[in-house]
Amino acid sequence: MAEWLKLIDKARSRSIWMLMYCTGCGAMEMPPAMTSRFDMERFGIMPMATPRQADVILVTGYVTKKTLKRIIYAYEQMPAPKWLVAHGSCPINGGVYWDSHATVNRLDLFLPVDLYVAGCMPRAEANMKMFTELIDMVAKGEARGWEEYEKNKAYYKENQRKLFGYDLVFTDGRSAL
């Protein structure tokens, strides 16, 4: 069974599909990593169109109060196991927008971040490093941010509530008709 799980972890590490949440300049650094110069598909990494199909969400730019809601919804719709990468200084500490009234300086207060990529902006080389790092972590079963989120949901939800002033997710039980 352990071997089986290891095999699945290996498969997961070699087939990382990503959802690019491109709010800022970080998006500019993705195409070089995708195209023939670096070719991330070598590692089975592909961009996907919807959160349902994605394994990792890349937050590549500043996070505002408004966009954070979308990030949370997208993250919650992703099937587990799922990972979140804070890409560039903005989601890590606010970057150049650290003193804006609208930006959220630290993403990891609201969602579990599996990997940080520092830089303003991180170049394509750094992106590739990030991907190989993520692959290693997934293969070893170390990227468990989604479990953290489930375990410490109260903490994250409390932070979210403090920021928005209300519960983000409907909890009235009307999940379907």
Binding site: P51, K69, Y73, A74, Q77, V169, F170, S175, A176
Partner: peptide
Amino acid sequence: NLDDFYNSS
């Protein structure tokens, strides 16, 4: 606990 209709998130 998410209202699971497609709704632009």
